[in-house]
Amino acid sequence: MFGLVFFPIVAVGLATSIVRSPYQTEQGIVRNQPVPFGHEHHVGDLGLDCRHCHESVEKSAFAEIPSAEVCMGCHSEVWRDSPMLAPVRESFQSGTSIKWTRVHDLPDYVYFNHSIHIHKGVACESCHGRVDKMPMMYRDASLQMSWCLDCHRHPETNRRVGDAVFAMGAVEDAVATGKTAESKTNCSYCHR
């Protein structure tokens, strides 16, 4: 019994202390999803704004994953009989949620918050990359602590104004916004 519990723990401990390769941080890796949803199609081709689906991203810590109801707003008509969308229709009818596989998932001891970043003009693209070019979602950044800190030490860079925060591709940087950003590297900002 003791061994059963102890060994996996040691294994995980060892694994995480090895210098992390992109494979280990799951950077750039596409996950299996119940529906082959493409940001490339919806953001790149259709030009949908992130907030059409990730509604709470400006207001709360969590960005929100859209419910089947949101998909059905369009897919009640577009591709209404496609087998690819069967799980969406099923979930819409039964009121259960679609079981998406999480692509980003920080350890529970890290407290991330979207709204502060959006308010300070940090663009989705700075952290999630060219989402409009992803046929399937993958993680663009390592999400390691050093990645957060690299930016937190120089928070003046990499910021945009207004709706450019949600745009993809080369956008003018917000040098003269008048909005300041402080360097926040105290442990307790991210660990409570």
């Binding site: 996996p8 723990i9 995980v12 401990g13 994953i65 350890p107 529970d108 001891y109």
Partner: peptide, 18 residues
């Protein structure tokens, strides 16, 4: 955790969003 006890902290017994 530093001593290698990470999983408890990585996945804590609380209900997160969703």
């Amino acid at each position: 955790m530093i001593a290698g006890c990470q999983p408890h902290m990585v996945d804590q017994p609380r209900v997160d969003t969703l």
